[in-house]
Computed example of a mutant assay.
Amino acid sequence: MKKTLLVILSMVLIGVCAIAALGAGKSAQSTKWIWPAKSKLFVGFSQADLASTWRDVETKDMQAVAKKKGYKIAVTNAKGDTEQQISDVESLLAQGCNVMVIVAIDADAIQPALDKCKAKGVPVIMKARGSNGKPGIDYVSSIMSDFVWEGNQAGKWIANAAKKKGLKTVRVVEIQGKVGGTDVRDRGQGFEDAAKEAGNFQFVATQPANWSRSQAQEVTQNILQSTGGKVDAIYCQNDEMALGASLALQAAGLKVNKDVFLVGVDGMYETFKAIKAGAVSATVTCSPKYAGLIFETIEAGMAGKKIAPKIAVQDRLVDATTVDKYYDLGF
């Protein structure tokens, strides 16, 4: 009797494991994306917001390249609202968009929108910001700058500059964008890696300013007041915030490079001019103008070609010694 019971239990367990394995296998299957004919391409571009020069240039670049290639495109602006972005994607699908390009506000919150596209087989390209979903399953590919590299380059520049200045301890402020995006997470991680490598960074404050120049100016003013101006370097996760921090430093009577190092990310022409004027120390380029690469990838998909799960945009470190060399990379 016991032997028979053991045999039955064993069979039940084998059956359960088999079902679990089949379920796991099913969930791991790649999504079957339905690419449209080239003549029928209708791109839906879900933009996170238009609150900065970067996003404005990015959107106009997408529209310009689509027009040049003769493709239909519809654009939405979620204004930084994650629920609005999901609604935007639903609207674009209802309009008949058959390829979706998404700049996600939040890497997790975008998942319902990806699920809706997946249910219809509509290919999704993640642009400029990623998703915590899986390539090939939740989206086709992510095309963006290497945010970890950008943050790392900013940190290394500060470490080298501080070493030349003879600083044993570097009191650092990090001003973040809007928390939740992969750009904030990865630029922060890259900077943290550089800090660990340097071994002498002392973080005075890490605060968000939501990509805003005015907010960054206010955040920097508050930090300078609370620390008595005892700051050696400020790292801003975009140039808009770096320019805001520069205004706060000027108001406090502190000089960039002499008193405080100030590094941003993006490569705005305005920042390049500020570097030449000594109002910003350095920046790491992150060009918004790569819609050509986005459409080339879409065309590859329509042609049945294999698409890499991640495609990196190449960027450069720019300071007073290289600003003329890389000036044309600005926007």
Rank of each mutant, 00 (worst) to 15 (best):
Q84S: 05
Q85S: 08
Q85A: 12
I86H: 00
I86D: 10
D88M: 06
V89R: 00
V89Y: 09
E90G: 10
E90D: 14
E90I: 03
E90H: 08
L92I: 04
L93D: 03
L93T: 10
Q95K: 09
N98C: 00
V99S: 05
M100F: 05
I102W: 00
A104K: 02
I105Y: 11
D106F: 05
D108S: 06
D108A: 01
I110Q: 07
I110H: 07
P112T: 05
A113R: 03
L114K: 09
D115F: 07
C117I: 01
K120M: 05
G121P: 05
P123Y: 02
I125C: 01
M126N: 10
M126W: 06
K127A: 07
A128R: 13
G130H: 10
G130C: 00
S131I: 00
S131V: 08
G133S: 04
G133N: 04
G133M: 02
P135N: 11
G136F: 08
I137N: 12
I137T: 10
I137K: 01
I137V: 15
D138C: 15
D138V: 09
D138E: 08
V140R: 13
V140E: 10
S142L: 15
M144Y: 12
S145I: 12
D146C: 12
W149L: 10
E150R: 02
E150M: 04
G151K: 06
G151Y: 00
G151D: 01
G151N: 05
N152S: 04
N152V: 01
N152Q: 13
G155V: 03
G155I: 09
G155M: 05
W157D: 05
W157V: 02
I158V: 15
I158G: 11
A159F: 14
A159H: 03
N160R: 15
N160P: 07
A162R: 01
K163D: 13
K165E: 14
K165V: 07
T169N: 09
V170C: 14
R171F: 07
V172L: 14
V172N: 07
V173H: 10
E174S: 05
E174K: 15
E174Y: 14
Q176E: 11
V179H: 13
V179L: 06
G180L: 00
G180Q: 09
G181C: 09
T182W: 09
R185H: 07
D186W: 01
R187G: 10
R187Q: 11
G190S: 00
F191I: 03
D193T: 06
A194F: 04
A194E: 12
A195G: 13
A195M: 07
N200V: 07
N200H: 12
N200T: 00
Q202K: 09
Q202W: 08
F203R: 09
F203W: 08
F203H: 03
V204F: 04
A205P: 14
A205T: 06
T206C: 03
Q207C: 03
P208M: 05
S214E: 10
Q215G: 11
Q215D: 12
A216G: 12
E218R: 13
E218G: 02
E218S: 02
V219A: 08
T220C: 01
Q221K: 05
Q221M: 01
N222Q: 04
I223K: 02
I223T: 01
L224P: 14
T227P: 02
G228K: 07
G228W: 15
